[in-house]
Amino acid sequence: MVPWFSWSAAIFFVAGLYLGFFVAPTDVQQGEAYRIMFIHVPASILSMFIYLVMAGYAALGLIFNTRLSSMMASALAPTGALLAFLSLWTGALWGKPMWGSWWVWDARLTSELILLFLYIGFIALHASIEDPRRADRASALLAIIGSVNVPIIYFSVQWWNTLHQGATIKFTGTSMHEVMQQGLLAMLLAVWLYAIAMTLIRVRSIILERESKTQWVAELIEVKR
């Protein structure tokens, strides 16, 4: 499955970047700088979504005691943290020409920063517990507690009237140029597929690491070599 997702991610990545940076017209208000949105928006959406998926897997692992779901949760965390960081980074790059400063203490930025801290906390807790079973379950509990934050980030633009602009794409229709929208969708798909591919690669190595004492791992061709 990994090559499928990685290759399609790469294709959509190229297509999205091409549409975003060469085809899409310049924005009336924001000029060329708006193009950073093609990375910023998918990264932000995915960083929130991955947290929910991670908390979901963690809950599954905690309730039904399935080992694979806990492994999936810990495989998702680094990708999520990376995307949260990317979203903050590109947001800062965009904020400098638009708002005139790298960082504004507004509700959405702050809560995205908290999300990054939650990811780091999850990874740190998982890393500091030796016993993998206990590590899985303890960090699963933490992930579930932290999932309270995701809706807060998502609705923060509506609840508090802040500097960060609201969503432009709505289900009822959009105020965006068509090519921009296509570019954004392509990038969203690309990041989505990238996250899946990375997670699958990581979960594969986690499985191999944990099952390294078993017969079937020892019989694998890659291991024998």
Binding site: G121, A124, S128
Partner: peptide
């Protein structure tokens, strides 16, 4: 856990 003190702050402060 070893290094529990700093870890607690890392987990609890964001919340």
């Amino acid at each position: 856990l070893r290094g529990g003190g700093a870890l607690v702050s890392l987990l609890v402060l964001p919340l």
